[in-house]
Simulated assay, not measured.
Amino acid sequence: MARFRVRAEYLEELLLLLAELAERSRQEPGCLEYGYYQSVDDPLAFSSFESWRTPADEVAHWQATHVRQALVRVAPMLHAAPEIVRAARIA
Rank of each mutant, 00 (worst) to 15 (best):
R68C: 08
L17I: 03
V67P: 05
Y10L: 01
V40E: 10
H79K: 05
I84N: 06
D57I: 05
R7M: 02
L14H: 01
F4K: 07
V6H: 03
Q69A: 14
V40T: 10
H66V: 00
L21T: 04
G30E: 11
E20G: 05
W52L: 08
H79Q: 12
P82K: 08
S25V: 03
A91R: 10
L44D: 06
A2G: 15
A64E: 08
R89T: 13
E28W: 05
C31P: 03
T65V: 08
T54P: 07
D41F: 13
P43T: 05
R89D: 09
L11S: 03
S25P: 06
V59N: 03
L71N: 09
V40G: 01
E23W: 07
R3V: 04
A64T: 01
W52G: 13
A80Q: 13
V74P: 04
A88C: 07
L32V: 15
E12C: 00
V85Q: 08
F4N: 04
Q27V: 00
T65E: 15
Q69L: 14
A87C: 04
A91H: 09
A2Y: 09
Y37E: 02
A8L: 05
T65L: 11
P43V: 06
A81W: 11
L15K: 13
H79E: 14
Q63R: 15
D42P: 05
S51W: 08
Q38C: 08
I84M: 12
E83D: 12
R7C: 01
A22P: 01
A60G: 06
R24T: 04
E58F: 14
A45H: 11
D41R: 14
R86D: 04
Q38H: 03
G30C: 10
A88M: 11
L15S: 02
V6A: 08
H61G: 06
P29S: 13
H66E: 02
A2N: 05
M1W: 03
E33K: 13
P43K: 09
V67S: 07
V67L: 07
V74A: 12
T54D: 07
Q63S: 11
L32Q: 14
S25L: 05
A60P: 09
E20A: 09
Y34W: 12
R73Q: 14
L17T: 03
R24L: 15
A60D: 11
H61V: 06
E9N: 02
A70W: 13
L11Q: 06
E28F: 07
L71V: 12
A91F: 11
R53M: 08
A87E: 14
